[in-house]
Design a protein around this nucleic acid. Structure first.
Lengths: 226, 226
DNA sequence: TACGATGTTGACGCGCTGTCAGCTTTTCGC
DNA sequence: GCGAAAAGCTGACAGCGCGTCAACATCGTA
């Protein structure tokens, strides 16, 4: 049984455009059903992952929340891992424009870029429907982390931005790879604590991270010159 | 069949002392067998996790590399997760004294502490038999991360050290939680790149990280005061 | 030596995995 | 519209991993 009629508005909003961009955007019955099924599986996956954790969920759990038969799952995804990847990439894709906006609004102001970018990330993490939020909020010991091509592309884009600013500010002794890695590490670790409520103030955290990176870069530059 | 006779020297060295400290350290046949079995399972687990990844390994895979029967596994661990935790905690326990040594050798020198601590961590990650090394070296998308009580204790100890230095250096506007989180994030992200060979020079990386943290803290202090 | 205690063994029932032959629905040429 | 072919949904199936447990083997003790 297909799920066209049971499509939820959230899944519609979240996945339809993305799915359409992957395949042709015809409006035949067949295409619509495929889109709806894919969306239904993803939405079910989001829910189940949030409820049972990554380890705990099975393909059967996901498909059961759907009106599809078990075999149908494999027409859309190879495994639960692939579903998770899709959800994760979805989040990355939604965050990307926020990062771009931060860079464009900042102009040549490195500090403004950093503050805006960190704040955008933290807000995104806490408020948007990221699968990572659902997962990190669980009080479990075992976390999963994914490095999808989409994630790596985001990393590279960030690195490009940082290199541009580093050049502008004559930080020629600061290794861009190390600098970008540090930014990402700080964002992740602080983001994790925000998600678990160990830290509350997003804006304070963003300013902390931004000043930290700025001061850190400058110190590295002056020490490495010597 | 028990595995006393097949105990390998590595597992002997790695797990025996630790296991003994958990239970009584009698030398009866029974106690010896328990120690040997536990060690055999852990050593098999280390191998299999490295070969198949965390996701890919099953309890059966682990026990099969052993001469024990499947049921015996559950006399020692509840799940593969628990085996992984034990291996992870083992690594944390071996790293702890290195961190203590860094602090004691540094005296009141914050910079020396940071450089030594980061370098110790990176060296440990790359050279010691950490389960995390085996895992991160795999070119897979899916990573696991564990927050065991042992890990959290290490985090708290590090936070204590950092607070001490922060007090000493009048960094009273620098949130210790944020600062420690940043240090950990930087260490993890740079460590990850070292493991995958994207960064080569350990000492340069350690100096980068240390200067970064020092400069970052100072900048945060001066900005937050204003 | 004999007996209770402790620990090991592997078969078992259950549930999940990925597949595939059969069936239903859609598409398309006429 | 109609009918055949294509597309894709369905659920049963074989294979395997899971955790358990009754039967068995080994150890400690008197």
């Amino acid at each position: 049984m297909q799920v066209l009629r049971t499509m939820k508005s959230t899944s519609d909003i979240l996945y339809k455009d993305r799915a359409e961009s992957l395949e042709g955007n015809q409006s035949g019955k067949r295409e619509q059903t495929k889109l709806a099924n894919r969306a239904a599986i993803l939405e079910a996956g989001r829910q189940i992952f949030a409820e049972l954790g990554y380890e705990g969920t099975t393909v059967r759990d996901i498909i059961r929340r759907t009106e599809l038969a078990s075999g149908t799952f494999y027409n859309y995804f190879k495994s639960k891992e692939e579903v998770f990847h899709a959800l994760h990439d979805d989040g990355v894709a939604r965050f990307k424009p926020l990062l771009r906006a931060a860079r464009e609004n900042a102009g040549q102001d490195f500090q403004a870029f950093m503050i805006t970018a960190f704040e955008a990330y933290f807000n995104f993490l806490l408020n948007d429907q990221t699968i990572d939020r659902e997962m990190a909020a669980m009080p479990e010991w075992t976390r999963v982390r994914f490095d999808t091509p989409e994630s790596l592309a985001l990393f590279d884009e960030l690195k490009g931005d940082i290199v541009a600013f580093a050049t502008e500010f004559k930080l020629d002794h600061v290794d861009p790879e190390l600098l970008t890695a540090s930014c990402v590490g700080i964002a992740q670790e602080i983001g994790d604590r925000l998600l678990r409520g160990r830290i509350k103030d997003i804006q304070a955290a963003a300013r902390f991270a931004a000043y930290f990176v700025l001061g850190g870069s400058q110190r590295v530059q002056s020490e490495m010159q010597a």
